[in-house]
């Protein structure tokens, strides 16, 4: 290929490349606009289903919509896809919201004096908060709420002596310090 043919072929090639780039960028912008509209609609209490290939942010918005309506089991279905498409930070926020929803459920059960329903919810909330901190240790709200949940229902591992198998083998004994403060402490 001579310099001459290059000179004459370059402008159309450049135009083609620019048109392709424009098409890709325009399509991406269009997609983002649609995703933003879905998030907006969910925030305005419209029951919108995200598309199958929706991004992590949209799935998280949908999960949040379900969680604040106490539909935890439905929201749990998004767990894997949020982590996969949204990265650890979004996964941490999702698990944190799951934990909050579970604690809210537990507190409602306690208000209704159904302690035996509240305890497993708090256990699951703790797992969710730990999951959140696993994904993003900088999510300080998860640390705080995990601390709250830990004191809500404190499980007592057998006095740890480094024998982890013992701890795992024995069923966890639970006690709740509700209502009021933990006894025997200042």
């Amino acid at each position: 290929m001579t310099l001459g043919t290059l000179k004459s072929a370059l402008p159309p090639a450049l135009l083609l490349a620019a048109l392709v780039a424009l098409g890709v960028a325009g399509w991406r912008l269009h997609e983002l606009r649609q995703e933003r509209a879905v998030i907006q609609a969910l925030a305005e209490n419209h029951d919108v289903q995200p598309a199958d290939d929706a991004s992590g942010a949209v799935l998280f918005a949908r999960a949040h919509y379900l969680l604040i309506r106490n539909r935890i089991d439905e929201a749990q279905g998004f767990s894997g896809r949020i982590a996969e498409r949204g990265g650890p930070e979004l996964a941490a926020r999702f698990h944190y919201d799951v934990g909050n929803a579970r604690v809210r459920r537990a507190l409602a059960a306690m208000d209704a004096s159904k302690i035996d329903q509240a305890i497993p919810e708090v256990r699951l909330a703790k797992d969710a908060y730990r999951e959140a901190l696993h994904a993003d240790a900088e999510l300080w709200d998860a640390r705080y709420n995990l601390d709250v949940a830990m004191r809500l229902v404190r499980d007592f591992p057998e006095l740890e002596s480094g024998e982890e198998e013992e701890v795992k083998a024995q069923p966890k004994k639970l006690w709740t310090d509700l209502p009021g403060l933990p006894r025997g402490l200042p």
């Binding site: 998030i39 949040h64 999702f94 999510l139 709200d141 705080y144 709420n145």
Partner: peptide, 8 residues
């Protein structure tokens, strides 16, 4: 009192 939810 819990810290508030992480909003989308």
């Amino acid at each position: 009192g819990l810290r508030p939810d992480a909003e989308p």
